[in-house]
Each structure stands twice: as C-alpha cells, then as structure tokens.
C-alpha cells in the first residue's frame, strides 16, 4: 500500500493541486456573488429597484389638471376627452415639477393635428380624416376647431 502511494505520488500532488484550485474557486465565488442574487429568482433582487429609479418625463393627466383646471375640464367634456394632455403638449413632467422655471408648450401646429387626422387608408374607417393639403389650405386648424373640444 505504501509503495502504491509512493508510485502514485505525482498523481496525488496533481489531485491536491486541483482540489486547491477548486477550493479557491469556491471561496472567491462565495465572495463575489452579488448581494440579493437569488432572493426572488435567478437575478439580483436589487435590479428591480434599479429599473424603478428613472424619473418620469410624462407627468400624466392628473398632474396637469392640478393647475390647469379649466382646459382640463373643457377637454374632458369634448370629443378629445380620451386624449391625454401630453399627447399634444409633449412630455411635461419637468414643467409640472417646476412650473415657474420650465415653460409648458402650446400645441397649435397644423402638423400635430395632421399626424392623427391626415387621410390614410390604414386608419379605421370611422376615424375623422381630412385631405391634409387641400383641407382649409393655409389656415391654422385652430382657426376653426377648438383642439380641446373639436367640431366646428
């Protein structure tokens, strides 16, 4: 038996080397696995929070109505009731947070209306559409229509 051990000594050394390597791997691994990994599944639980961090750019309709009660009411009563303020006025969370410093945005451009109301066959048939070039050529849409309560 002792002879066998002596003749396999190099293999034992190799085995020990591998065992040492494996041990180092396991120790290092235990140190490096990020905190919270595996708590909720195979991922860093903290990654959920990281995905929540960004600040919203669109404030949402409720935030607009807090200051702009009158236009919000007229919008709610008209044909555009389902549309959010920021659909036309753009992302205004920054304005909602600091109304005095950051100005809002008046939406009057013809291009804006045309984006939804230009004639396009792929649009649902019941959706109000106009020929964007010939319809009231040259005039601003808001000359005839109230964007908050469209119709003539």
């Amino acid at each position: 038996m002792r002879e066998l051990l002596r003749d396999a000594e190099h293999l034992i050394r190799l085995g020990l080397l591998f065992a040492a390597g494996l041990l180092v791997f396991l120790v290092v691994r235990a140190q490096l696995v990020p905190a919270g990994f595996g708590e909720l599944g195979h991922f860093r639980a903290g990654a959920i929070g990281a995905n929540q961090e960004r600040e919203p750019r669109f404030a949402g309709r409720a935030a607009c109505a807090e200051c702009h009660g009158e236009p919000a009411e007229s919008l709610a009563a008209g044909g555009h009731a389902a549309i959010s303020c920021e659909s036309c006025h753009g992302a205004l969370a920054a304005h909602a947070a600091e109304p005095a410093e950051i100005p809002g945005f008046a939406a009057t451009a013809r291009a804006l209306c045309v984006q939804c109301h230009a004639m396009n066959r792929a649009r649902p048939a019941g959706h109000p559409q106009v020929e964007p070039v010939s319809h009231a050529e040259g005039a601003a849409c808001t000359d005839c229509h109230d964007a908050h309560a469209p119709g003539l």
Binding site: F58, G60, S87
Partner: peptide, 11 residues
Amino acid sequence: LTTACCEVCPT
C-alpha cells in the same frame, strides 16, 4: 402611473 405609450395613445 400608466406607461408612456398608453398615456399618449389618443384612441
């Protein structure tokens, strides 16, 4: 809040 795409979807 709702998603940005749902927030602005006019229809």
